[in-house]
């Protein structure tokens, strides 16, 4: 006991000195976090609970009217919010359905091909995001690549107008924009997986399909979850794609939010933003629980 207390006496001042030093080290990071994230969020929160007669005024009375409006207004906002979530779910599912096999293919390619294919996956990031979205109007438009090709081969005489400015084109562009994240996240988890597990499963009588469903997929679920986080959440906040290729039917919640901000209705805009943020937070907590569960399995 005596030795233990001696040790404690010797160690505690060192720990005492170490903690402020650690805090000093964190200071720049904390400053950035507070200035760029916490303060704006506090302002937005204040806006969302204030009703002011003047523009951008923070004086006024406390109210939950903005939040009530999000959930009432004849269901306009709620409907668009649900629609946004559904489109994000569909786009995320499409990303997984296309991205998983592609990641699997890359992970099973030879070393040299792997680096080539991965470079191709990352290549879109070399050009402007805006440009990449615009490019799709040149592919899907009335005088775009697809319609011109169809006319050239005599398949159609009128351009197919359902290709652009609707939910379809919106989802196509979402998948195009976000699939690299899916591929990279799943590729990483496939790379991490012990390949001998696949051999062992086949050795024990599992066909390739059974091996995939029972061994490979469960082993790469963390990658699937990660890609959901990287794809689903950003799509919820997408503004450029619905604006450029979504047309009237492709209006999403962020478009409505931006309209409010443009109209200087900060209070209502902020309320929409916080409703979405709450939803995302709940989703993340839910995912984190399942990912943690998964880690228990894998660790």
């Amino acid at each position: 006991m005596r030795a233990a207390s001696n040790v404690a006496v010797h160690i505690s001042p060192r720990v005492g000195r170490a903690i402020p030093r650690l805090l000093w080290g964190l200071l720049p990071l904390a400053t950035i976090d507070v200035v760029l994230f916490v303060i704006p969020m506090v302002f937005m929160a204040l806006f969302s609970f204030r009703f002011s007669e003047e523009l951008l005024g923070l004086v006024g009375r406390w109210t939950v009217a903005h939040y009530v409006k999000v959930f009432t207004s004849e269901g306009i906002y709620l409907r668009i919010l649900v629609k946004t979530i559904v489109i994000a779910v569909v786009a995320t599912a499409a990303c997984l359905l296309v991205g998983y096999p592609f990641a699997y293919f890359i992970a099973n390619a030879s070393r040299r091909w792997q680096s080539v294919l991965l470079t191709l996956v990352i290549m879109p990031f070399w050009t402007s995001y805006l440009l990449r979205v615009y490019a799709w109007t040149a592919i899907l438009g009335d005088r775009g690549l697809i319609n011109e090709a169809l006319r050239f081969f005599g398949v159609t005489d009128q351009p197919l107008s359902f290709l652009l400015f609707n939910v379809f084109s919106e989802i196509v562009v979402f998948v195009y924009l976000y699939i690299p994240y899916t591929v990279l996240a799943i590729y990483a988890s496939l790379e991490k997986m012990d390949r001998s597990l696949v051999l062992a499963a086949m050795d024990l009588g599992a066909t390739p399909v059974q091996t995939f469903l029972r061994i490979v997929l469960p082993q790469t679920l963390p990658g699937v979850y990660a890609s959901i986080v990287f794809v689903f959440i950003p799509i919820l906040g997408e503004y450029v794609t619905p604006t450029l290729v979504g047309g009237m039917s492709g209006v999403l919640i962020t478009n409505l939010l931006v309209n409010q901000i443009h109209a200087l209705e900060f209070g209502f805009g902020a309320a929409i933003a916080f409703v979405m943020a709450t939803f995302v937070l709940m989703l993340l907590l839910g995912l984190r629980r399942s990912v943690d569960l998964e880690r228990l399995y894998v660790a």
């Binding site: 012990d194 001998s196 597990l197 062992a200 050795d203 061994i215 399995y297």
Partner: peptide
């Protein structure tokens, strides 16, 4: 035929 692998290859999940 069944195999005991050098790395055991037990299914971790």
């Amino acid at each position: 035929v069944n195999t005991v692998f050098q790395s055991y290859a037990l299914f971790p999940h």
